[in-house]
Design a binder for these strands. Structure first.
Lengths: 188, 188
DNA sequence: CCGACCATGACACGCCATGTCATCACCGCT
DNA sequence: AGCGGTGATGACATGGCGTGTCATGGTCGG
């Protein structure tokens, strides 16, 4: 028989999400999480850097995915076209079909200032990856930064609209519409 | 004689900034700050919500300023024109002439993940104020959100370039250039 | 069969942040 | 002058977060 039950990390994540939903993030202590998972407090911090990280373990793959996407994209063509293709791929692979779970997660994140901060940090980390991807393709720093920040903005403004809406528009359609809106707004 | 020395908040801020510069943010404990300021630990938290807030007390006026600016602006005219005027005013009143101090502050913020998170949070709070300002002027939610997020992005991408550069371009010129760059990049 | 490995347990510890009550100069009022 | 309210600070207690360190003992390759 195994010395420990398997999947400690996943058990911790499950226990944490349950408790966050039941009693809120702030009211849930790490010892309470580990007690439910049948582990010790110290072990929690071996799997997650801090209490907030539990809620972001899921999305940690997105920056790496985006980085790979940019590295694989052909070096020819307009940056914007590549960006749209990338946004579409990320939308389809990491958001579409997970609406219910993402809504619940968003509710928890919105309930706590610390979690909002962490969320913004993750967003910024994604923007940085995209910016470096553009830099690697030879764009000047200012263009790369603007494109990266704008693309992440488009993504998350659209995700918000997508999660708020009760219809069944696809996320990518919303992103395309948002781009058109932004273009119109910025036109002199 | 006064029971306490005056300007407790300012003394705490001074002591904190000195210690952050001397030994770094993480290595500086709140008791160390209050000891230098001649106060108790508890008093620190009466003036600042947490250790990080000391570094953002200066910029706390910007959202309120932006809110007032949007409320005072005439309700006619293009949103973009108003935005540019607002960015210019904020640049002139809250950034221009403080380059050295802002550079030092940026170095400290960049050195600590928690401070970067707080910085992003302040930025998001500013974006929210701008978004609500546009909402109050009758813009649809999606347009308001996109304009607000984009304007804050323009501001901070430009501030970064401004602080990085050794020349003496004015911040507002850089913002205008950035807007032109973004327009060109987004053009289909 | 054995020894290195590695996930976890057990324990200690310092700091952050908050609640609570006491203190006492200052201020306005009479 | 006297007097009570006010408000900033001190003093103390507390609990949770996050980390360093060493021990433990199944697991797995040789």
């Amino acid at each position: 028989m195994a010395r420990w039950q398997p999947d400690a990390r996943e058990r911790l994540r499950q226990a944490a999400l349950e408790l966050f939903a039941e009693q809120g993030f702030a009211a849930t202590t790490v010892p309470a999480i580990t007690a439910r998972a049948g582990l010790t407090t110290r072990t929690f911090f071996r799997h997650f850097a801090d209490k907030r990280e539990v809620l972001f373990a899921d999305e940690s793959a997105i920056p790496a995915f985006a980085e790979q996407l940019m590295a694989d994209a052909p070096t020819t063509g307009e940056p914007l076209a590549m960006l749209l293709a990338g946004l579409r791929t990320v939308a389809e692979t990491h958001f579409e079909g997970r609406k219910a779970a993402l809504r619940q997660r968003r509710a928890i994140v919105a309930s706590d200032p610390g979690l909002r901060e962490r969320d913004l940090h993750k967003r910024a980390a994604l923007a940085e990856v995209v910016r470096e991807g553009f830099r690697a393709r030879g764009l000047e720093p200012a263009r790369a930064a603007l494109l990266a920040e704008t693309s992440v903005t488009l993504m998350y403004v659209s995700v918000t609209e997508w999660l708020d809406a009760d219809d069944d528009r696809r996320l990518y359609e919303i992103i395309e519409t948002a781009l058109e809106t932004l273009r119109a707004e910025l036109r002199p």
